[in-house]
């Protein structure tokens, strides 16, 4: 019983600190001037959420939450790689259109 009293406040304090950092990361993701800035911020948020899920797994004594954390790591890695590749493809296609004078949207959202 005494053990619970010590672990519980520590975990809650860490969760609160991590959520504040997560909000600051979100500010970076919204402000970031370029696409790569936003992707870096999203990657950081994924890492922090992984730590939060692991802490929750010990706090709630539900071991299977760590499995979800592993899957979260894989999906966030996949998301970063796929979004980067897709954005490079879109950029090159748009550039190609501009060079050929076929029109397309001229505003360079970066």
């Amino acid at each position: 019983m005494e053990k619970e009293m010590l672990y519980h406040p520590l975990f809650i304090a860490l969760l609160i600190l991590l959520s504040i950092m997560l909000l600051v990361c979100l500010i970076r993701a919204v402000k970031g001037p370029r696409v790569a800035d936003r992707l870096v911020a999203v990657n950081m948020m994924g890492t922090m959420v992984m730590v939060m899920i692991s802490i929750l797994a010990l706090l709630l004594k539900e071991g299977y939450l760590v499995d979800i954390c592993l899957i979260y790591a894989m999906i966030s890695f996949l998301a970063v790689v796929v979004i980067s590749k897709v954005y490079i493809g879109i950029y090159e296609e748009r550039h190609h259109n501009l060079e050929n004078g076929e029109g397309g949207d001229t505003d360079e959202r970066s």
Binding site: R34, V35, V80, I88
Partner: peptide, 10 residues
């Protein structure tokens, strides 16, 4: 991959 994205699009 992110730095390649930056180098390719900037």
């Amino acid at each position: 991959v992110l730095s390649r994205l930056e180098a390719a699009t900037n």
